[in-house]
Every structure is written in C-alpha cells, then in structure tokens.
Design a protein around this nucleic acid. Structure first.
Length: 704
RNA sequence: GGGCGCGUAGCUCAAUUGGUUAGAGCGUCUCGUUUACACCGAGAAGGUACGAGGUUCGAAUCCUCGCGCGCCCACCA
C-alpha cells in the first residue's frame, strides 16, 4: 500500500491521474451526483477570452470558484459550475490585429469572410488549449455543459434580447457622437476609455460681433474644430454677456454667422464663460445643440474617421490635414488675421493648461469624439414600454434591496456611483470579430459585453433541458473588480430585464494579481508568472494555496515564487504526515471504535471546533482565513505537536493507549483531508485513496 | 471637481468584525539527523500599529484632523 508513497511528494503524475479519475466519475455534472445532492448551487464561470493562454489572474478565479464549488458539492448540494469561453470581440480583434501586423498584413485589406474564418480558427485553437489549462488547475466544472459566446443558440438569445429592447423603445440608432479610435477604426463605449492628464494649449479666440461692433472671446483647446461651430453659448445668469444674447458672431475661420444662445450647462467660471458649440465633435456641445431649436444651422462633421479634416466650409489650408497639424495651421490663420482686424483673431495662448484627455484603453491613442450615423445605442435611463423602470433603475434597486450583494460591500457604493452617471450605451463596433448586429444597413457587430452581459441566463437557457428552471438564478458571480462596469453591471441589468430575476445572489470580487513591487503583471513588463510553468514545478495545489492565503476580497493579491514554494513544502508536509499515519495505523480494527483517553477525546473535540470554524469561514467567503487556519492547524498542531506526542504511544506496550492514538491520528487526518480538499484537491484526493475506510468513495463527493 | 481604499515585523500580508501576551509565510540568527518529512525539527531576534487628538472598562479595529501612497468616476469646453 505504501509503495506508491514516494518521497518527496510528486505532484506531476498524480495530478494528471486524479483529474482523469474525477472526470471519469461524472461528478462534475450535477445530474450525475448521488441522490443526496438536492439543493442546487450554481456558479457560471466567467468565460476566459479565447485569444491567448491562461494567466495568473485566471488561476485566481479558478481557485476561488473551485473552492466554493467543491465545498458545496461535499456539503451535499446539487452543484453546477458551468464553464465557457468568450470570443471577446474587441479584445481578440486587437490581439489578432497585432498578429496580422507582425505578418505584414492588415485587417482593413482582408475580405471580411476570410478574416472571420481565420479568427474563428484562431479562437478555437486557443479555446482548446485553455480548456486543458483549466483542467490542470483542477477546475471541477461540468464540461458537458460548456458554452462559447458564438454558439448559435447563444446568438439567438442575444438577437431576442435585441428585438425586445427594440420593441420596448430602449434601442435607437442614429447620428450621435461616439468615442472613435482612429487606430482601431471603431467606436468604443464609455467604459472602454481611460483618461490621462495632459498639458495642452488653451487658446483664446475672438469672434467678431458686427451687430454690436464688438467681439466675444471663446477659450478652446481645439481651434481646428472652429469651422464646425454652429453657435456660441453663455450661461443665462452671466451678466457679462447679456447684450450678446441673440446676436450673431462671425466664425473666424469661415465667416459663417453664429447665433449666441444661453444654456445653463455653460460654466460661468470656466475659461471666458463662452462656449463654442461644435455638435459633431463634442458631446456636451451635441447635447446643447439638441436642446436648442433656435439654432437653425445644420451641423456637420469636419474630421473623418481617419482623423483628417474634410467637408464643407473649411479653410483650404486645413483640408486633408491630421487633427494636430490642423490645429497648428488654424492658429497660424488666426494669428495672421490679427494683422487685418484686431477684433477678429487670436487674443492669447495659455500653453501650460492641464486637461484630461480620453484615450483608447487598448492602444492609448487619443479618442476622437465624432458624430457618426447608424450607431446603435441602448437607453439606460428611460423606462421600457412594457415596464416602469429603466435598465439602470432595476439594477440599482436589486442591489439596494439586497437581492444582489457585493463582497466586499464597499463595491456597492462604487456601483451606485457609476450607475448614477451612466449614459446610453453604444453597442456598435466597426470590427469583424463579433456577433453581427441584425441590421442590413450596417456591417457593425455588437459590443462583446452586450452579449456577455446576457451570459448567466443565455448559458442556462441553452445548456440543458431544465437547466434554466433548476439553476437560475445562480448563487455566486465571482470575478475581478476591474470588470464591474463592463460586465457585472450589465449582467444585473439584462438578467433582471429579460428574466425578471437577478442573475446571481452574490458578487464576489477579487483583485488584480500583482508582483512584489505592486506592479500589474503584464507580458510587456516581463513580470508575469505563468501558472502552467509554476504548476509544472510546484504543483497545482501549491499554486492554489499561494493564490488564496492573504487574498482578501476586493484587494489585489501579490504573488511571488517563494510563496508558491512555501505551499509546495506544505503539500509535502501533508504527504509525509499522511505517510506516517498510514504506516502506523494499518493494524487498527476499523469495525469498532476504541476507547479514547481523556486527552485524545479533548483533541477530537478541538478538531470538531476547528471544523466548524473552517466551515464558517468558507460559508462567509473568507477563504483566505480558512486556508491560513488549515495550513496552521495541519502543520503546527497536527504534525508538530499531535503526531510527535503519539510517537512514544505508538511504540509502547499499552495496547489500548496505542489504539486510542491510532484512532485519533486517523480521525484528524481524515477530517483535515476533507477540509483541505477544496483548496488542495489533488493531493487530498490521492491520499484519500490510500486511507483504510469502509465503503470509500472519491473524496470530492465525501460528506463535508 | 466628486468618490473609494490603503498605511501593522526587513519584505509580502492576516487577525472569526471592539476583547487576554497583535499572528503567518519568506528572510535573518543559534542548535539539532529521532518511527513521516532537510520541500525537516526545536528555539531566538525582530512591532511607539503613519502622526495627533477623541469615544470606550478596553482601540490595529469606531470618530475627527493632518501626512504619505494607490485607485475609480466626471460634459474643466
């Protein structure tokens, strides 16, 4: 029996063997669990992007979710962990664009169908690699129910939602300002931007007002957009400009007449208190323009999607120039006109002006606000025809009422704050990779989060006959806090909107893995820890423990190789201690329970208490504490103290005392293997197979 | 401009929610090969808890202010 107990513990072979054993048992599938498993417990796995291999962040979520899943399965729940993979629209497009670039190709020169096919093959290949990596991490998910975000039945559901939104008047399409990335040639939603403070020039430009033989000064960072001005606006309470209201200014770059209007959105204290209204290149301007029917001037865009100036009423010198060049040239034109008329020109430049600019979160290039036709938007704050609450309000209410709870709770505040400021959601993307929007007039695809926002119900509606009925709403959504807005918020909105129920009860948010210098791990920094490489050396159990201990909800965990090595040593400790127990308890009669000494009884009692503690910690999402306690108890109480103290007793002649000690050791080992199983599933399962137990099953389905 | 969080051993982090002497890992030092384990054992050093007030029988934990970090949101044109 002990022949296989090599020393030290060899994780490599054992892990492969054990995973096969689990898969063969069928117990990953809730339908195949023994009859005692009744109450459903469900987690939908955040589908990893099928555009690369798993990184350490994936290992964090796999571990956290697998702990919950294995705990509930042992507890006797009908446990489902539904895996999947995400086509990850824009993300994958960016990855693939880079790949094409390396090969000297460009997506803009490849026929759509051909590119689609290439990307399909690419993601399918990645998907397969990823699935094997999940297995290596020990993920006990139900592979028979695996879904992909581009499965036909999923797409059908996405289309149904699209139709429902349309019928409910929550969807509109039209000319509107979008965040345009010139490099990627697509629009982006508001959450796909990052912001950066930049030093810019703030230009003071005089607009002549002939009716008063005067002028009015506008402060702007973007003089190149002046040809697209349609009006000027001041705050109605601003006394300085009272006499200008209703008069006309002259556009200094094209001579057009511009009505001077009032709008309370204009900040009196900012700049000169005069705002030029350029509705095709600024969102605030667009809003103001839409509010004022008295501006009887058509607006038009003068910057094209490639970031170059074009269109009517533009000085010839600017045509075809890129935005930055156009800015310099327009300033030159204004400076020159100073010589002709001092009331009609540039009156000053503040060159140390700090303002915040919006950048594409992927490539960091400055996002150009452009008005585009045919972009689809989802209304966030308006009531649907069929109901009386907006998408925003149903989600906010679900969290406020406690139907959905965040762990840690502070993220509820972040959630509310974001929801308060939410604007309509641009779901059109001008890329190839994604679900095509069912709209004949454009080639756009959906924002990937439009479909993944429907993931919890879409998966369960398509994974099995009664799955939706049995497993929805799910219990826990476990994911990283950085996709709270991208994903979690949208899932809550869509879940409630489509099914009437929140998609999950708890949202557990973990942090972003960082290195010892608190740097985010990234390939470009070269500080990544490859989970598979680490597993190869130290074993999956060690990696899992290292990722859990010290990892509190919502905070960024720090991982480094020495820590993983520490838990590899722990795995070996478990192995050696078990070896000792098995070597010394082989002759214990299992049919009758021996009479225990008083001190052994006390230790059993302490063990019971310990078991309750661990259960409480896991049940309240304190996995880090549970893991640390388990580590400590096993090593420093069980191995260092209890095992040591039984050595003379096992050797001694007192048969009763010896049996008592043997019983104690076996009990503690058994209980600890169970408690450790969710955290370190491989080694505990392997040892379990050697234990002298009647009617032995797999540890993964033993009673908690 | 609004908001969130953090500051505990040399380093990285905990502490069952206000309760004895603040704990782990890694690192450091001294011993040690014994029925599992050197991926080990026994022991040691190491803390003014960022600072200053306050609440309390009792504060790392709650409150206020200050200092230093980190992050999120925003229509500063």
């Amino acid at each position: 029996m002990l022949k296989q107990f090599d020393k030290p513990y060899n994780s490599k072979e054992i892990e492969k063997k054990i995973y096969r054993l689990w898969e063969k048992s069928g117990f990953f599938n809730p339908d195949k669990l023994p009859a005692r498993h009744k109450k459903p417990f469900t987690i939908i796995m955040p589908p990893p992007n099928a555009n690369g291999s798993l990184h350490i962040g994936h290992a964090v979520f796999v571990t956290l979710q697998d702990i919950m899943i294995r705990y509930h399965r042992m507890k006797g729940d009908k446990t489902l962990w539904l895996p999947g993979a995400d086509h990850a629209g824009f993300e994958t497009q960016v990855v693939y664009d880079k790949k094409l670039e390396k090969e000297g190709r460009s997506r803009f020169k490849i026929p759509r169908d051909k590119l689609w096919k290439e990307m399909w093959d690419f993601t399918q290949k990645n998907k397969e690699i990823m699935e094997n990596q999940l297995r290596q991490l020990g993920a006990s998910c139900d592979w028979s129910r695996e879904k992909f975000t581009l499965d036909k039945d999923i797409i059908d559901i996405v289309y149904k939602t699209f139709e429902k939104l349309k019928k409910d008047n929550l969807l509109y399409r039209g000319k509107r300002i979008v965040n345009w990335c010139i490099k990627h040639q697509t629009s982006l939603s508001d959450v796909e931007l990052k912001y950066e403070e930049r030093k810019n020039c703030f230009y003071y430009v005089k607009y002549k007002v002939p009716e008063l033989n005067s002028s009015i000064t506008v402060a702007t960072t973007r003089p190149e957009t002046i040809p697209a001005d349609v009006a000027l606006a001041v705050n109605p309470k601003d006394k300085r400009y009272k006499k200008f209201i209703g008069r006309h200014a002259v556009n200094p770059l094209n001579g057009e007449r511009l009505l001077i209007i009032t709008d309370s959105a204009v900040d009196i204290k900012f700049g000169t208190g005069v705002l030029k209204i350029t509705p095709d290149h600024d969102r605030l301007d667009e809003e103001i323009y839409n509010r004022h029917s008295e501006i009887n001037k058509d607006s038009h865009r003068i910057i094209n999607p490639f970031g170059k100036l074009e269109g009517k009423n533009i000085p010839k010198e600017l045509l075809g120039l890129k935005v930055k060049e156009a800015r310099d040239v327009s300033i030159k034109i204004l400076e020159n006109s100073n010589n002709l008329d001092e009331k009609f020109a540039l009156s000053g430049i503040d060159s140390n002006y700090l303002n915040t600019v919006a950048l594409c979160y992927k490539c960091g290039s400055q996002v150009e606000p452009l008005s585009l036709d045919n972009q689809w938007f989802v209304k966030m704050t308006e009531k649907p025809k069929s109901g009386n609450k907006s998408l925003r309000d149903i989600a906010v209410e679900a969290v406020k009422s406690g139907k959905v709870e965040f762990i840690p709770k502070r993220f509820e505040k972040v959630f509310f704050h974001w929801m308060k400021n939410i604007r309509d959601w641009n779901i059109s993307r001008q890329i190839v990779w994604g679900i095509k929007i069912p709209d004949k007039s454009t080639e756009d695809v959906f924002d990937t989060w439009f479909s993944s926002g429907q993931w919890p119900f879409a998966t369960l509606m398509t994974s099995g006959k009664n799955d939706f009925k049995n497993f929805y709403p799910t219990d826990v959504m476990e994911t990283a806090w950085d996709i709270l807005f991208f994903w979690v918020a949208r899932m809550i909105m869509f879940g409630l909107y489509i099914t009437g129920k929140p998609p999950f009860k708890y949202v557990y948010l973990h942090g972003l893995v960082r290195d010892k210098e608190r740097q985010k791990m990234s390939k470009s920094k070269g500080n990544v820890i490859d989970p598979l490489g680490v597993i190869d050396i130290y074993g999956a159990d060690a990696l899992r423990m290292a990722l859990i201990v010290g990892n509190t909800p919502g905070n960024d965990p720090i991982i480094y190789e020495e820590k993983i090595r520490g838990y590899r040593n722990f795995a070996n400790k478990i192995w050696q201690a078990s070896r000792f127990v098995l070597m010394n308890c082989g002759d214990l009669n299992l049919k009758t329970k021996p009479k225990l000494t008083a001190s052994d009884r006390k230790k059993i009692k302490e063990l019971e208490k310990f078991k309750k503690e661990i259960t409480k910690f896991i049940g309240s999402f304190k996995f880090h504490t549970a893991a640390e306690r388990l580590y400590h108890y096993f090593w420093h109480t069980f191995a260092d103290k209890i095992i040591e103290s039984t050595k003379p007793r096992l050797k001694g002649d007192n048969k009763k005392d010896r049996q008592s000690a043997q019983y104690l050791l076996l009990e503690i080992l058994k209980t600890n293997l169970k408690l450790l199983h969710p955290f370190m599933p491989f080694i505990t399962e392997e040892i379990w197979q050697y234990l002298p137990i009647k009617e032995k099953k797999l540890l993964m389905v033993e009673k908690w």
